[in-house]
Amino acid sequence: MQTPTLSAKISRLLHKDSTLGPILLSPGFLFLAVMMAYPFFYAIYLSFTDKEVGGAANFTGFENYEKLFSTTLFAKTVVNSLVYTSIALVLKFSCGMALALLLNRPFIGQRFAKALMLLPWILPTAFSTMIWQWIFSPAFSVVNEVLVNKLHLISQPLPFLRDETWAMGSLIFINLWRGLPFFAITFLAAIQSVSNEIIEASRIDGASPWQSFWLIVFPAILPVVTIVMLISTIGTLGDFDLPFLLTRGGPNNATTMFALTTYNLSLGSGLIGLGSAVTMTMFPFLLVLIIASLINVRRQQQG
């Protein structure tokens, strides 16, 4: 009697936590091991080789890194990424918090307004960035048209994507536009989960609205704020879509960042080893952020 014992064995394996857990986990685990862990280690390996498109990979030690650290392209990549990420994060945090507090007051059509507000975050970035490209177009920008010819506020059109500083500013602006809804709605959800009685009690004790926000509400929502900020920092630091679509890293590499420089070197110029080294230089930044996120999530799960 082979079959019943076999099926009994299987049903026992599927019954116990200690065996069912690994069984259920294995498809996802195997997939991520092959498609994420393996490529990650493969990238480390590639970064130490002179691999080019169509060529063989020869081990060259730290040559790629030495080469990178001596180029202005790499210096610009690091500075641009850090400027873009830090300014965008400060803006998304402050504007997101202000908008959350605004939305926290009761008003007619709140649900509808919240739904509309989320559109920049939900709709395809590729296409919304094309619209921004059109809005910031050098010769036919609607913003310049309004500022120069309709309102007469300025005499010269603004060089949105042509000037180095303006191009970075435009990217940060669009990043704020896309991320603001997400920040505002998650902050709002956190604020609304804080007990009203505590806030009212603090008001009765004589705290101003400003005080009761910073002393009562903000500490209570800090865990959510921190995790949103950390995850968004990682996403912004590794952003490819916006710089690729809007400026291609230009003008004069003023807006190129980690992911775009990697793309341009490896897939544009075919220097796969060198491109992989760019990716790897992002890793120390990521590691710090990932560890901070992990500590934060752990604390949240325990608290």
Partner: peptide
């Protein structure tokens, strides 16, 4: 949380 921009080069290979 790992960014997608991180893996496309080795994945392509």
């Amino acid at each position: 949380i790992a960014p997608k921009g991180f893996l496309f080069v080795p994945l392509a290979q």
